[in-house]
């Protein structure tokens, strides 16, 4: 059963200049479509990874799922509850404590003036729950020691801080954790520790992860299903084995070819052409057509629909 269901999700940001400048300089409103008509489902107790380059909208989707940003249109339901529309207060409260988030930068996401104990129990304490011994128990579960509860964040290394963030995310016994680039700020050996910890906790607590990352090797290692985003649109979705062995969208193919390979000694890459276009004026039709080797006239005029193709879903007119 799908725990999270995202359907036709769109988020538009108004990035116009201030009203007075617009009037004086006769500028039109400028709107940035960060997420455009994205539909996907996240199965219970699975890891769904969103990959894409900067500006592809992956973090915006994460923020909408946890409720930090409202969708412009479309909907996100978590366990059958749509946080943006649900009127039953109890259901909203319950769903909110079912979702937690782990951020990229463990230096910025812990309050430096709070002791670790207070940081970890806050998701429970804020709702008036019992917190006796909770921080100590969680610290041991994430591989730190109970004694650490009395310390401040600055006394820990980056990897240890990310463990504290994980402990905090676990405090309210969530079902879904949204991880936005959880290991991008960490060194390789520490990243391995945190990734292993996250896999273990998923099995222990039956968690579901929405894993947002730009690192294809990490995603391949962690995910059960991968969604590839380009300019706010979902272009391909498949299981990792399928995606990496047989990428069907030209953008996915380009991305995989460009990623450095550990065994690619002296590999001469034919580097991808061009850059991500301006999201305020995205290309017509398929957003990838100006960089796509397969592009034809239909790509310029018509946005491709998401179609099932063997084990994957692909949005491309020419996918085979």
């Amino acid at each position: 059963m799908a725990l999270v269901e995202i359907s036709n999700l769109t988020r538009v940001f108004d990035v116009s200049k201030p009203w007075l400048n617009r009037v004086l300089e006769r500028l039109p409103k400028s709107l940035l479509t960060a997420v455009s008509d994205v539909s996907l489902q996240i199965e219970d107790r699975s890891i769904y990874a969103l990959v894409g380059e900067s500006g592809s909208g992956k973090s915006t989707i994460g923020k909408i799922v946890v409720g930090l940003t409202a969708p412009s249109s479309g909907s996100v339901t978590i366990g059958g509850v749509d946080l943006a529309r649900e009127s039953d207060r109890g259901a909203v409260e319950q769903t909110r404590s079912d979702i937690q988030m782990i951020f990229q930068d463990p230096y910025a996401s812990l309050n430096p003036r709070w002791r670790v104990r207070d940081i970890i129990v806050e998701p429970v304490a804020a709702k008036g729950g019992k917190t006796d011994g909770l921080a100590e128990r969680l610290l041991e579960q994430v591989g730190l020691v109970a004694r650490d509860a009395g310390k401040f964040p600055h006394e820990f290394s980056g990897g240890q801080r990310q463990r504290i963030c994980v402990a905090r995310a676990l405090a309210s016994e969530p079902r879904l954790i949204v991880c936005d680039e959880p290991t991008s700020a960490l060194d390789v050996s520490v990243q391995a520790q945190v990734l292993n910890l996250m896999s273990d906790l998923k099995d222990t607590f039956g968690l579901t992860y929405l894993f947002i990352s730009h690192d294809l090797t990490v995603v391949q290692h962690m995910a059960d299903r991968i969604g590839v985003l380009y300019l706010g649109r979902l272009v391909e979705e498949a299981a990792p084995a399928e995606l990496f062995a047989d990428p069907k969208h030209p953008y996915t193919q380009m991305l995989l070819a460009a990623a450095p390979k550990m065994d690619g000694f002296g590999r001469e890459v034919d580097p991808p052409k061009g850059e991500i276009p301006d999201p305020i004026n995205p290309p017509s039709g398929c957003a990838f057509h100006p960089r796509c080797p397969l592009a034809t006239d239909v790509c310029k005029s018509e946005r491709p629909a998401m179609l099932d193709l063997r084990e994957a879903r692909v949005a491309c007119h020419h996918a085979m």
């Binding site: 990897g159 050996s189 391995a192 292993n196 550990m262």
Partner: peptide
């Protein structure tokens, strides 16, 4: 060797990553 083991590799699949305990 630890660094290489800690880097997720295509060939490894879902096996646990090798951890170097502790930090620098």
């Amino acid at each position: 060797r630890g660094l290489m083991g800690a880097t997720p590799l295509a060939s490894q699949g879902k096996a646990r990553l090798h951890q170097i305990p502790g930090a620098m």
